[in-house]
């Protein structure tokens, strides 16, 4: 049983695709992290090579434009253990058939790929609503712990919305920061603890928000199951109104 191991980035998976075509072999699975080997597992380590990845990127663009490229590799942001394998197999089919197959839902891999994409898009959308900023000395600060690696997908919405504010969005699970300085956005890795100093008004507005939140609820219509569906509990620990 053949298994590819790569770094799990779009470039890494692209190099797996390249190897698969050049050496005419199709792996059973593609992984970046750990996996359970069996007695007949043959592991091939695929090194990431930017030049090769670029050739693959152009190849994919020929099958369905640059849109297809970003769509195909979107699931790599997921936490799902099959993300690299599914991405690989759908991308391989596109390259082989020289067309986009991302809507061929008779293919189980394509369906899985779509589900991962939808989950990621859904989380980005949810976070646009659920993120909470605090007013701090020097700008706005928000922390969150998304399931998927999406801080750079989430941040542009806020840069557009608050073009003249400075802000930091902190993925505390992955130690990633999206930093907006009032002009441009960048994502940086940060392994140090982040300390922020709240503005003097901050506490007061948090209190008012909590008051609003509890007053707008209709007690006689309590439906926590519904609330849990729309706003899963794991998101609440980063939200002011649930403190």
């Amino acid at each position: 049983m053949l298994i590819y191991k790569c770094d799990g980035t779009a470039e890494g998976v692209s190099c797996c695709l390249y190897d698969s075509f050049v050496n005419k072999r199709v792996p059973e699975a593609v992984y970046s992290g750990s996996f359970q080997p069996s007695f007949d597992t043959e592991v091939v380590n695929i090194a990431t090579d930017k030049a090769i990845a670029e050739r693959v990127r152009r190849g994919i663009a020929k099958c369905g434009g640059i849109w297809l490229y970003s769509e195909l590799f979107l699931p790599l942001r997921s936490y799902d253990g099959l993300r690299e394998s599914v991405t690989f197999s759908v991308a391989r089919r596109c390259l082989e058939e020289r067309r986009s197959v991302v809507t061929d839902y008779t293919d189980a891999n394509v369906l899985y790929h779509r589900d991962l994409c939808e989950k990621i898009r859904k989380e980005v959308h949810r976070i646009h609503g659920f993120l909470r900023f605090s007013e701090c000395v020097g700008g706005l600060y928000a922390h969150f712990e998304p399931d998927n690696d999406i801080v750079d997908l989430v941040a542009p919405h806020f840069a557009e919305r608050f073009p003249s504010e400075k802000f930091i969005i902190h993925d505390t699970k992955r130690n990633l920061l999206a930093v907006y300085d009032g002009k441009s956005l960048k994502t940086v890795v940060n392994d140090y603890p982040v300390t922020v100093y709240l503005s003097t008004e901050e506490e007061n507005f948090r209190k008012l928000w909590k008051t609003y939140f509890s007053s707008v609820n209709i007690e006689s219509r309590k439906n926590e199951k519904l609330q849990n569906n729309y706003l899963p509990r794991r998101y609440r620990k980063n939200m002011t109104e649930f403190e």
Binding site: H125, R126, H128, G129, F130, H157, E160, R161, F162, P163, S164, E165, Y212, F213, V216, N217, I218, E219, R221, K222, N223, E224, K225, L226, Q227, N229, Y230, L231, M239, E241
Partner: peptide
């Protein structure tokens, strides 16, 4: 956004959900 603060997303955005399961989007 054309200067000032804010914009609007065509599909709408929910910011929270109260115990009755209703969405909070706008401050009502």
């Amino acid at each position: 956004n054309v200067g000032g603060t804010g914009n609007a997303a065509y599909g709408g955005i929910c910011h929270s959900f109260t115990q009755d399961g209703r969405c909070i989007s706008l401050m009502k």
